[in-house]
Design a protein around this nucleic acid. Structure first.
Lengths: 224, 224
DNA sequence: CTCGCTGTCTACCAAGTGGTAGACACTGTA
DNA sequence: TACAGTGTCTACCACTTGGTAGACAGCGAG
């Protein structure tokens, strides 16, 4: 009955997202609990009520971020449509079942879109790896099962043992690209759409190369 | 007369390098002046004697790092030997004048070697861009003239207006790659020599593509 | 009404931070 | 010897940090 009209996010969740944002763009050490609290209009002691220490908060933020990332990636993989091959007028030659390439493209695109939609998500990963343990180890263990899940979403069960490594490597690449983009703007380079497109293409291509090692023709991936 | 047998680095220089290392692998905010001082066996007040504030120390560290980086790159470019094209037994077809491709390869190799020899140098760049102003702006202005100098060392004066942008983009790419490598190990991926080689090749290739836009054949770059 | 629980608050603390003031030792010069 | 300059030190300060202790308000159940 007492369901709120808009069910507002719990204090705990509000703290998590605010901390994620702050950690991502000001850094963890540079972010005080007071600062996060102030941003939410609460006191630092309320944060310490929900999270026993700043370190624990960071670990939970990592989990939170990985969760969100995993959801986005899985959704993208599952809702991938098969690409219309040439031009707009063509009828769909292969019907609605997306190929592996389609799914990979969807995932990569979703991730790249993340770079402008929610850059904190990638930034916090970088920040955590920079800080080292315990955050980085938590990140590793949180990402680990996610890679398996993503493999599932890609429609490829365990028949490719290296799949997990490949996906992890791709994640690392994306974080690297995000860093590269940031450094580019810092060095005074104008935003370069061509660079972005090229990076996207390279990533997709290298993923396909790893997953379908038999292929030499790169432009079109035939049905199975 | 009183020339020391080994002229030890000045206190100022010792502080600079110690601070660079600390900033690079623990982060700037996480590094206290006390910590840097302790590592050198001196007191924090001695640091503040040479550098009026921590912020100024950071700026000088940036200059120091960029200087060192510039020296390494320039040296590599200047001392580049022309590659022996095929096998070891072949006589040098083109004599001792290295082509642009040779110089670029030398520079890229030197930079990659840096990744294992002196990773702090790249890490501190990343850290500074992460922190934002004033460090990042200082980095930008310190790197700016260096790009011109590197252009000189490459044997290509001002006849390529985009050259500076291309070199800056390459720097950004290298920092991105360094980050990618770090994230890879954090995610539990084993060091991958093949990945390193591929990244090297891609970087050289994309540099050549940008610098010699007319080319389609990528494997061999003829004299002039 | 009262009790216990939950969530937020005020008040405080010990430790650590960057930075200042000034004493002290060592040098070369007059 | 006296002196000025340089480099390092001890002593201290104002401030911020993460974290603790405990008061207090609201609330549903008995």
């Amino acid at each position: 009955m007492a369901v709120p009209v808009v069910d507002q996010p719990s204090t705990r969740d509000r703290i998590l997202t605010a901390a994620l944002d702050a950690f991502a763009d000001r850094g963890v050490e540079a972010t005080s609990l007071d600062a996060v609290a102030a941003e939410l209009g609460i006191r630092k002691q309320t944060i310490l009520y929900w999270f026993p220490s700043k370190e624990q908060l960071l670990l939970d933020v990592v989990d939170h971020a990985v969760d969100e990332l995993g959801r986005i990636v899985s959704d993208a993989a599952r809702s991938a449509r098969s690409r219309t091959r040439s031009g707009s007028g063509a009828a769909d030659e292969s019907p609605h079942v997306p190929t592996l390439a389609d799914r990979l493209t969807a995932v990569v695109d979703a991730t790249f879109r993340l770079g402008t939609t929610r850059p904190q998500l990638l930034a916090v990963l970088r920040e955590v790896t920079r800080l080292g343990p315990p955050g980085s180890t938590r990140l590793a263990s949180a990402v680990e099962p996610l890679a398996g899940e993503a493999a599932e979403a890609l429609g490829r069960p365990a028949d490719q043992p290296r799949l997990k490594e490949i996906l992890l490597a791709a994640s690392a690449r994306v974080v690297g690209l995000a860093t590269e983009a940031e450094v580019r703007t810092d060095l005074g380079l104008a935003p370069d759409l061509a660079w972005l497109r090229r990076s996207r293409q390279d990533l997709i291509k290298s993923l396909l190369d790893s997953l379908l090692p038999g292929l030499n023709d790169l432009t079109r991936v035939s049905k199975h």
